[in-house]
Design a protein around this nucleic acid. Structure first.
Lengths: 223, 223, 223, 223
DNA sequence: TATGAATGAGAATTCATTCAT
DNA sequence: TATGAATGAATTCTCATTCAT
C-alpha cells in the first residue's frame, strides 16, 4: 500500500478515470470506512457511495463484503511488511535492526492510521473459512518478525527453538500492537518515543529497566 | 468463571429455583456464544435458546444486547483482576510478583477460554457510550497492571514517569494478550510455559536472551 | 365519575385498603395514563405500576386492556351525562337548557381533562366487537343530546324528523368536542367563554352572527 | 384521491413501469389500510403486501411508518383543501360560499372514505415531533376555514375578533367532522342532505330552526 | 387473594446481495 | 460495463397475557 494517498496525476486525462483507478478508489474508500466504523457497522452502501460508484459495480470488483475486507487487510499487511523490511537489512547489527524495525512499524501506524486500524480490528475474527484467511493474513506479519528474530539469534550464536522464537515474536508484535493504540489516540505523539519505550523494555528487560538501565542506543532525553 | 462472584443467596428458600440461577445461566450462555461468534454475529435468539429461556426473559434481565455484553465484560474483568491480585501480594519480591501474575493470567486464559475471548474481542469497539464503557473496562485491567509496575519501580528505588509506566504496562499487557492466543488455539499447551517465555523476555530483555541468559527463576530446560 | 379525585378517607383504616378502593385506584391510574399516552402507547405495566398493584391483579379485575379501556369510557360517559343532565331540567326554557348544558359540558372538560381525553380519543376505534362497544359508549352521549333536542323541538311546537334531530345533535356534539380542544390546550381559558361562543353560533346561526347579532342571553362583554 | 396531484411524468419512457407508479401504489395501499385498522394496528408488512412490494422497498420509498402516515395525511389534506377551495370563489355571496364548501367537503368524504378516515384518525396524536406534524396538518384545514369565515365577516361589514373567528371555524369543522361519520357509516346517504342539515343549523341557528325557519337556499322538502 | 417470573407472537427496521435494463 | 430498483432473511426489542407459588 505504498500507493495510499497517491493522487492519480494532477490532471485526469479525459472525463473517465482509468479502470485501475476504480480499484484504488474502492480500496481507499473501504479502508477509510472500515477503519472508522469497523467491519460490521460498515455497510456496502457507504463504501459504494464513498467510492463514487454503484453497489453492483462494487460487487463486480470484489464479490462480497468479506472478500473486500480481506483484500484490504492483505494490502495493508503487505505494505506494512514492506515498510519494515525495507529498512531492516540483514547486515546491520541486531540492535540496529530491531530499532529500525520498531521505528518503521510505529511510523507506519502514525502515518497510515486507517490502514493500521483495519489490520488491528481483525484481531479476533472467527468465522469459518473467511476468518481463517483473515488469521492467515495476520500470521504473515508474525512470520516475518519471527524470521527476523530467528536470523538475529543465529547471528548471535544462540539459535533458539521454534516455539521459543514464535513466542518471542508473538510477544513483541503484541506489545507493539498494544502500544500503537497510543499513537492512534494521540496523533501528536511521536513514533520514535513509542519505539524507544519498547526498545528499552526489549533490550534491557524489566529487570534492567527497574535498575535504571536503558538501551544505550538512544539517550533517555534524546529523541 | 461461574464460580467467581457467586454469592450463594443467604437463604435458598424452597424448591423454587433461585432467581439468581437464571442470571447465571444467562451469563454462561452469553459468554459462551459471544466468545464463539463475536458480538455482532451473535443474536439474542441464540443466547436465549442456549440459556434455555425466552427472549423476553432475557431482555427482562439485561435490558439490551449491548448491556448484556458489557455485563459479561465487567464480570470477566473483575474475575481476571481478582485472579491475578490474589496471588500477587505486595510484600513479595518484584520478580516473584511478576512471575505469579503472569502465571495467574495465562492460567486464567487457559482455564476460562471463552471468558477471556469475550474480553479480548472488545479490543476494537468504537460506538458511543457503549464503546466508552467497553474501553473503560479494558482500561481497568491496564490500570491494575500499571499500578503493579509502579509499586515495583518504587521499591527498586527507581520511580518511573507516568508515561514510562503506562508504556511498559501497555506493552506487557499487549504481549500477554498476544501470547494468550497460543493458549487458546492449542488447548494442550501449559500456561507455565507461556509464562516462562514472557518472563524470560521481560526479565532478561532480548539483549540478554540472545546471549543465552534466561531468567534464573526457572531452569531453561525445565518444563 | 363524580368520584374522581376522591381521596378515600384521610386515614386508611388498617394496613390494607378496602377492595373497592383497589378498583378506584385502577381506574384513576388507567384514566390518567390512557389520557396521557393514548390507548396504544399505554402498557399494562404502566397502569399496574401507577395503580400500585401487580399485573395479574390488574387482569383479575378487568380481564383485558381493551375491557379496561372500555370501562373507563363507560364511567366517564356516565359521569359526563350525569353532569349535564343534572343541570338541564326539562321545565326550563329551551335556551336556558342549551346554555346550561353547554356550560356543564365545557366545565366538565376543563375540570376533568384526563377523563375527557379518554373519551375523545376513541373517536375512531374500528376493531370488531371491541370497537363496536366503544362506539356504542360514545353513542350514549349522542342519544342523550338527541333526546334533549327532541323534547325541545316538541315544546317549540315544531317536531323534527329523526334524521333531522340526529343530524343536529351530531353537529352540536361535534362542535363542542372540537371546541373542547381549546380548553385542553389552554388550561387558563374559561369554560363560559367557550360556551358563549358556541351558544352564539347555535342560537343566532352564522347568518345572524355575521350581522352582529348575538344571543341575547349573554352580553358580549359579560362573562 | 389517486387522481389528485398525479403529475403524469413528462415522458413515460419505455415499457418499464414508471417509478412514480410504485409511489402511488404505496400510498393507495397505505391509505386503505390505515383507514381500515388505524395507525397502530397497521403493520408495515400489511402495507407492503397490499402494495405488492417488499418491505425494504417500502422503506426505501418512505423511510418509516410514521413518515408514511404523515405523507398520507399531507396528501389527503391538500386534496381536501383543494376540493373545497376550487368551488369556493371569493366573489360569490357568503351563503353560497358556505353552501358550496360544505357540499364539497361532504362529497369528498363520501367519495374518498378511506382518505378522510386517515385524516380523521389523527385527531389524537400526541407523540413528539411526529405528533406535532400531525397537529400541524390538521391545523392547516382549520386555518383555511378560518380564513374563509374571516373574509366573509369582513364582507358583511362585521369583522370578528381572532378568537371569535377561530372559535367559529373550530365549531364548524367539528360539526362537519362529526356529521361525516354518518356518511361513512351509511354509504347510501347523499352528501347534499348532510350539507343541508348543517347549513340549516349554521344559517338559521337552532333558535330559528326550532321555529321552523330553514335556510332559504334549499326548500325544506327538497332533497 | 396477590404476585414474581415467564413467554408467544409480532413489529419496525436494516443490509448484503442480485436482477432487468 | 454500470446501475436503479428490489428483496430475502435476519435482528433487536416490546407487550398483553398467564402460570406456579
Amino acid at each position: 500500500m505504498p500507493d495510499v494517498n497517491t493522487e492519480p496525476e494532477p490532471a485526469a486525462k479525459s472525463g473517465r478515470t482509468a479502470p485501475t483507478d476504480q480499484g484504488e478508489k474502492i480500496f481507499a474508500a473501504a479502508v477509510s470506512i472500515f477503519a472508522e466504523h469497523g467491519y460490521h457497522k460498515t455497510s456496502m452502501d457507504e463504501i459504494a457511495e464513498a467510492a463514487g460508484i454503484s453497489k453492483p459495480t462494487l460487487y463486480a470488483y470484489l464479490g462480497s463484503k468479506a472478500e473486500l475486507y480481506r483484500m484490504c487487510m492483505r494490502r495493508v499487511t503487505e505494505a506494512l511488511i514492506e515498510a519494515i523490511s525495507s529498512v531492516v537489512s540483514e547486515d546491520l547489527p541486531i540492535e540496529e535492526q530491531l530499532w529500525r524495525g520498531l521505528n518503521a512499524f510505529f511510523s507506519f501506524v502514525a502515518r497510515f492510521r486507517d490502514e493500521w486500524r483495519v489490520l488491528y480490528q481483525q484481531v479476533v475474527w472467527q468465522e469459518g473459512p473467511a476468518g481463517d484467511e483473515a488469521v492467515a493474513t495476520r500470521r504473515l506479519l508474525l512470520d516475518n518478525v519471527t524470521e527476523l528474530l530467528g536470523r538475529a539469534a543465529v547471528r548471535q550464536g544462540n539459535p533458539l527453538g521454534t516455539d521459543e522464537l514464535r513466542g518471542l515474536s508473538t510477544a513483541l508484535v503484541g506489545a507493539a500492537e498494544s502500544l500503537s493504540e497510543g499513537l492512534i489516540d494521540h496523533p501528536g505523539q511521536r513514533p520514535e518515543d513509542t519505539s524507544r519505550q519498547l526498545m528499552n523494555l526489549l533490550w534491557q528487560g524489566l529487570g534492567g529497566l527497574l535498575h535504571g538501565e536503558v538501551w544505550p542506543g538512544v539517550s533517555p532525553a534524546g529523541t
